[in-house]
Amino acid sequence: MIKTTVRALAAAALALLPLAATVPAHAAETLSLHDAIKALPQAAESRDGYERSKFKHWIDEDKDGCNTRNEVLLAEALTPPTVTAGCKLTGGTWSSYYDDKVVEGPSGLDIDHMVPLAEAWDSGASQWTAARRQAYANDLGSERSLVAVTARSNRQKADQDPATWMPPAADAQCTYLADWVATKLRWSLTVDRDERDTLRARAVDCEDTDVEYDRV
């Protein structure tokens, strides 16, 4: 089950749960996957100076007691968890679209940054302010930016881009490419040559896939 289906099933459960405030965005644009990849600026990558701590997360921006991790879990739950004091979550079920696994309970899930923090640094975030890096690391303004997946798949992915890692579930491939490209466009991040070549090659099998995104 792809992520968009998961979000739709969870929407009703979220009606009374406000999400954290996000950076104001421009009007959404929609491109074919091919054209969206073409729109990505190409540049060499550098990890000089990267430290994960330079992207502050998980925060509780709207002060409702639930940090970004828990906001994502609440947003993506197939079966809503029980929420108790301190935004402690118990029970619930989730679908990890990377590996097409259904997970019971939140402890088996990681919240993955679609474009990993290290990759974002390599691709332009090294030049950002601390405030913009924090906004990126806690981006609840786009359903593509953060995703609840099995801890196993998230740790296999680590900080790799699509040139070296793709989700193992066959049905996830085109969705993942669209999510990756949309996130890079949203945050005006670059791609390197190998990444661009891989995206173009893999997009051949995703002719009917569109990319919807807004810029921040």
Rank of each mutant, 00 (worst) to 15 (best):
R152Y: 12
W180M: 03
A15S: 14
E104D: 12
G86A: 07
R52L: 10
S123C: 05
L185I: 06
A137G: 15
C174E: 10
G108K: 13
R186F: 05
V102E: 11
A163K: 04
S188R: 13
A135L: 14
L177S: 01
A44D: 14
R144D: 15
A137W: 10
R193M: 14
V83G: 06
A12T: 03
D48T: 15
H57N: 15
V23L: 11
E71P: 02
R202P: 02
A39L: 06
A148T: 00
K63W: 01
W58D: 08
K38L: 11
E207N: 09
P162W: 06
L189S: 05
R193C: 08
D208T: 08
G141F: 09
L19V: 10
K3A: 01
T183E: 01
A163F: 03
T90P: 02
S142E: 09
A25K: 05
P162L: 10
A137Q: 14
D110G: 08
R133D: 09
A39P: 05
T79Y: 08
P18A: 08
T5S: 07
E51H: 15
R202H: 11
A120M: 09
S95V: 08
E61W: 13
L31A: 09
N67C: 13
C66T: 07
D210T: 12
L199Y: 03
A203P: 05
D110P: 07
D179K: 01
Y213R: 00
R132A: 10
S145C: 09
D197W: 01
A15H: 09
V204C: 01
C87N: 09
A131W: 12
Y213E: 01
F55G: 12
V149T: 01
A10L: 02
T30E: 05
V211H: 02
M114P: 00
G108D: 10
E71L: 06
V191D: 02
C206K: 03
P167V: 01
W180T: 00
R52A: 15
A43P: 02
S145N: 11
P80C: 09
A158W: 14
L31K: 07
S95L: 04
S107H: 10
L185E: 05
D208R: 12
T79A: 14
A10Y: 02
K38V: 08
L16M: 04
E143W: 05
L89V: 04
V83E: 11
T5Y: 04
A130P: 07
Y136R: 12
V211I: 09
A203I: 07
